[in-house]
């Protein structure tokens, strides 16, 4: 029932029978909708994999394709056209959702390139002490102590404004570090987009590390925010 995403065999159009390259949403000859094409999310938008994207152009293309592909346009079409409209639109939406978000886009591209990245979606993981970035080890240790203290104080109904202030300060600091990571990532985007094969390999490695650090920091900031807000 499903095509695997890596197939790139030429196929014949179901409607006009003329053969065409697999990675197309519409038959180049008769313009009829086709089953979901192979290829990655970038190719849905006619792009080569890259990290710096013109988001407004991406949105325009998303709207243009939506108008042609959406199931609303096929409410009274043939059963198979309905089916493909649904599958193609799902692909388009998945692709747009992934590419418009800088982090999802970066993770997606790195996975396409074969990098191993921690799964973001597996539940709401707490800060894993074994993955603390080395330069933060000491501060994170202190912070975790304070968080624990805060939670205990909250539990027994104590107010500790000094502790609260210190946590707020820590939050500020780690949020700043998070911003710095984002800036570093942005710099890597250009390095990857414009680099040769060798430069890309190196950039990928740095991005994987940055994403790990980012993941760690954002969990930390969230924990502090939650504890303060509780």
């Amino acid at each position: 029932m499903f095509k695997t995403l890596d197939s790139a065999v030429p196929v014949a159009c179901w409607s006009c029978s003329i053969g065409h390259n697999d990675s197309t949403l519409f038959c180049p000859h008769c313009s009829k909708i086709q089953p979901p094409p192979g290829g990655d999310y970038f190719s849905v938008f006619g792009l080569k994999p890259r990290l710096e994207l013109d988001l407004s152009a991406l949105e325009q293309e998303f709207h243009r394709l939506s108008r042609k592909l959406h199931p609303d346009r096929f409410a009274r079409a043939l059963v198979n056209e309905k089916e493909w409209s649904l599958a193609d639109t799902a692909l388009l939406n998945d692709a747009y959702r992934t590419l418009k978000d800088p982090l999802r886009r970066t993770e997606y591209l790195l996975k396409l390139e074969g990098a191993e990245i921690g799964e973001e979606h597996s539940g709401k993981d707490r800060v894993d002490p074994s993955r603390v970035p080395a330069d933060l080890l000491e501060e994170v240790f202190d912070l975790n102590m304070q968080l624990e203290e805060m939670r205990m104080a909250r539990k027994i109904g104590d107010e500790d404004s000094a502790l609260e202030a210190s946590l707020a300060e820590a939050k500020e600091k780690f949020s700043g570090l998070l911003k710095a990571v984002d800036e570093d990532l942005r710099a890597e985007w250009r390095a990857w987009d414009e680099g040769n094969e060798l430069a890309r390999q190196a950039s990928q490695k740095r991005m994987v590390a940055l994403l790990d650090r980012r993941h760690y920091l954002s969990n930390l900031v969230r924990d502090v925010t939650e504890t303060l807000g509780a």
């Binding site: 599958a87 799902a90 692909l91 939406n93 959702r97 979606h121 597996s122 539940g123």
Partner: peptide, 14 residues
């Protein structure tokens, strides 16, 4: 729970 499609994703989504 392992989330596979986040809320507020444009539908159809897969």
């Amino acid at each position: 729970v392992a989330r596979i499609i986040q809320r507020n994703s444009t539908i159809p989504a897969s």
